[in-house]
């Protein structure tokens, strides 16, 4: 199924976030729920973050869940999680839709930057 690749890279991402010291320092007070939605596969994944740790991943079929939402094609999501695409660049190009508080969106971008710099 199309969603499987995405799930794999997401689990890698979760491991990296939870193990990376710099990322942990940045997000130690951060608690939120992130939705990554693949609009071409009509499903997504909810990541629950508590005090900087990603404590669960859940597959969802409803776009309305999550405090911060990142919506784009599945392939773009995969490239994002593999660090092959710069989130800021995707935002400036209008390739991804991001919803949620500005602060949360910036933290998410900073996490990606620390992971793949």
């Amino acid at each position: 199924m199309g969603g499987k690749d995405l799930k794999e890279v997401l689990y890698d991402f979760v491991n990296n976030v939870n193990k990376n010291e710099k990322v942990q320092k940045l997000i130690k007070r951060w608690s939120t729920t992130l939705l990554f939605w693949g609009k071409d596969i009509n499903k997504g994944f909810i990541l629950q973050i508590q005090d900087g740790k990603i404590i669960s991943i859940k597959e969802v079929y409803n776009e309305d869940e999550g405090k911060v939402k990142v919506i784009t094609e599945k392939e773009t999501l995969i490239k994002m999680f593999e660090g092959k695409e710069n989130i800021a660049h995707l935002y400036l190009d209008g390739v991804v839709e991001t919803y949620g508080s500005e602060k949360d969106q910036i933290v998410l971008d900073a996490v990606a930057r620390l992971l793949w710099k």
Binding site: N86, A88, H89, Y91, L92, E102, I106, D109
Partner: peptide, 13 residues
């Protein structure tokens, strides 16, 4: 606030 987000993203890019 609106302008800072764009400047930030352009710096990131």
């Amino acid at each position: 606030l609106g302008a800072s987000r764009l400047i930030y993203a352009l710096g990131r890019e």
